[in-house]
């Protein structure tokens, strides 16, 4: 079993599904001969042909709109958008058509579409190349939003996304593409969608995060452990539909919760989770819920990037605040 990084896990999952199901077709800008802007599709066109791995013009509206038509015809298109900041020209088709095709036809048509796109900051890229649009997408009924945080979860969740009968926005944290390696078996075993993954058990507080921020969140849990504080760490993984029960169950045991995301603060998914805790878990809380998030500004150029992104120190400070509360 090979140790691979997250982008290699994406490639492995795409190759597995291309080989398993001839309805799977990839399309996007420079994904063929060039192997994709982050090399996620490297070698796939050579292996599966230009009819299965389709290079498109730089035209996001057409990529996603065409993929919706293909999905309506029973194919399983997997579209790549080079950066999530380039997704916006395609939003019309995602919200107005992909997300609604099933509802609009009461199930006579579904839209088994996956849109893969790198997201998040931390690679010293400018604004549009560092976006975190997950809350905007999660707000749309009919879109499923998934973000892996490790090579193994990237492999298993992407298999599940491609096999899912509905549209899935698969947001790949750019900063994690080559952050670490992990053993991943190419066994075709999908991981479940719509559930959180508890990455480590704990008794004193619950840290909730997703995507690349789990790197800092886990480091914060390590730092807290050196002080004798036991933090449970939850990877939300599927952001919509949100698995609130797993978070509620954890907070029922720990009584404290810190939510960490790098997207801007206002109306971020942290607010949704905090609202869920207020509605359904208030009596188990021993301290106010804390959010550690990006700021309500555009992702800055690289010098200020580390100021923008939640740091281990900020997460630890928020955790201490919950512990001091009672």
């Amino acid at each position: 079993m090979a140790e691979i990084n997250l982008v290699e896990a994406v490639n492995l999952a795409l190759a597995h599904e291309l080989a398993r199901d001839e309805a799977v077709v990839l399309l996007g800008e420079d994904i063929g001969a060039n192997g994709g802007v982050f090399r996620a599709t490297v070698g796939l066109q050579q292996r599966f042909g230009a009819g299965r791995v389709v290079d498109t013009p730089l035209a996001e509206t057409a990529i996603v709109g065409t993929a919706i038509g293909m999905a309506a015809m029973g194919l399983r298109p997997v579209a790549e958008i080079q950066f999530s900041g380039f997704l916006y020209p395609a939003i019309d088709h995602l919200i107005n058509h992909a997300a609604r095709l099933r509802n609009r036809t009461r199930g006579r048509l579904t839209c088994p579409l996956v849109v893969r796109t790198p997201c998040g900051g931390g690679i010293h890229a400018p604004e549009h190349h560092s976006e975190s649009p997950e809350a905007m997408l999660a707000h749309t009924p009919g879109l499923r939003v998934v973000m892996p945080s490790s090579p193994a979860r990237a492999y298993g969740l992407l298999l599940a996304a491609i096999r899912d009968p509905d549209p899935v926005m698969f947001l790949e944290p750019t900063r994690m593409y080559r952050l670490f390696r992990q053993e991943v078996a190419d066994d075709g075993e999908a991981l479940p969608l719509d559930v959180c993954f508890t990455l480590r058990g704990g008794t004193d507080l619950t840290l909730v995060s997703w995507g690349a921020m789990l790197h800092e969140t886990q480091a914060a849990a390590d730092a807290l452990a050196t002080e004798g504080i036991s933090a449970e760490v939850i990877d939300v993984a599927t952001l919509k539909p949100l698995d609130l029960p797993t978070i509620l169950e954890s907070v029922a045991r720990t009584g404290r919760c810190v939510i960490v995301h790098e997207a801007a603060r206002t109306a971020g998914l942290g607010a949704e989770i905090a609202a869920g805790l207020a509605e359904e878990g208030l009596y188990s809380l021993l301290a106010p819920v804390q959010r550690v998030t990006g700021y309500d500004t555009v992702m800055p150029l690289s010098r200020l990037e580390t100021q923008y992104l939640p740091s281990v120190e900020r997460i630890v400070a928020a955790a201490r605040k919950t512990l001091e509360a009672s």
Binding site: G69, M73, D92, H93, H97, R104
Partner: peptide, 24 residues
């Protein structure tokens, strides 16, 4: 494959139907 309330919304969809036909 539908009426479409969005002006121009059906055009890429139609391209997708035709591409799917070719691939199949």
């Amino acid at each position: 494959y539908g009426g479409n309330a969005i002006v121009g919304g059906g055009l890429p969809l139609a391209v997708g139907l035709a591409l799917a036909d070719r691939l199949q």
